[in-house]
């Protein structure tokens, strides 16, 4: 009996509305991030991740307002990502009530930013998002590279090496998304998850590809992930958070029920 594995529903937000569709029974205004965050909180989500997917300058105010409203009503950890490029961005989000920020592209273009952010705010609030795509052919030793711009732009960086580097620079947690699996509902890429989990000493959140509750179990038991992140299986009401937690618990994973 010890530390529970975490389930993290992810809200992809564009101009103040949750996209990818959300369909909770009984909620009409399904796109409001604050309502959705409250609902996940009531269901027993262990954390919430808020991803500003457009992250445009003009949306910043809306995002800050949303984060403030969520943090005023939802008393579980809140991670905010999307367009975090400077220490001022981090300060703004932490002041709005975020507990952690997720740094993605800016970590690739300027790795020292991660070091600076961890020094200034502490590793506990610095999550580095890693978007990995398999680049080896079938039959070759598996290899994954870091891609940016939603999986379109290769960087040439080896994903496992990059994960190690980011932890050295001060990342307190890694959010690993398989760009091959994201949106496919075919399950996590267990290979890259296990490779990165074994390479670093900080918690790893597996993301990208969840379609069934068995995928969540595999992410933890085979991939070794400390937390699993999913959006659509929860948004569309296919499964609730309590369904997922009970199922994982029945499969021998310690959960907070």
């Amino acid at each position: 009996m010890g530390l529970a594995k975490r389930i993290i529903p992810c809200l992809d937000v564009d101009a103040g509305r949750v996209v990818k569709g959300v369909n909770f029974i009984g909620i009409r205004d399904a796109g409001d991030p604050v309502e959705i965050a409250k609902r996940y909180n009531q269901q027993g989500a262990d954390e919430i991740t808020f991803l500003d997917i457009t992250a445009s300058h003009q949306n910043r105010g809306t995002t800050v307002d949303m984060v403030e409203r969520i943090a005023g009503e939802v008393f579980i950890p809140l991670t905010v990502g999307g367009g975090i490029r400077t220490c001022d961005d981090i300060r703004t989000m932490l002041n709005a009530g975020a507990d952690k920020v997720s740094i993605n592209t800016a970590a690739v273009t300027n790795p020292d930013f991660v070091r600076e952010a961890a020094d200034r705010f502490g590793s506990q609030c610095i999550v580095v998002a890693i978007d990995a795509k398999r680049v080896s052919a079938d039959g070759e030793t598996p290899r994954w590279e870091i891609f940016t711009h939603g999986g379109r732009k290769p960087t040439g960086l080896d994903a496992v090496e990059w994960a190690r580097t980011m932890v050295e620079y001060g990342a307190g947690e890694l959010l690993l998304t398989s760009m091959d699996r994201d949106g496919t509902k075919a399950g996590f890429d267990i290979g890259v998850t296990r490779a990165i989990v074994d390479a670093v000493g900080v918690p790893v959140i597996a993301s990208g590809g969840v379609g069934t509750l068995d995928h969540l179990v595999a992410g933890v038991k085979e991939g070794g992930a400390d937390a699993v992140l999913a959006a659509s299986i929860f948004h569309f009401g296919e499964y609730s958070i309590p369904d997922a937690k009970r199922y994982m618990q029945e499969h021998g994973i310690e959960m907070r029920l």
């Binding site: 010890g2 530390l3 529970a4 594995k5 590793s123 307190g172 947690e173 900080v202 400390d226 937390a227």
Partner: peptide
Amino acid sequence: GERLKVPHMGWNR
């Protein structure tokens, strides 16, 4: 036998 991560992060009893 799974290696435990530091920081100790998450929900514990």
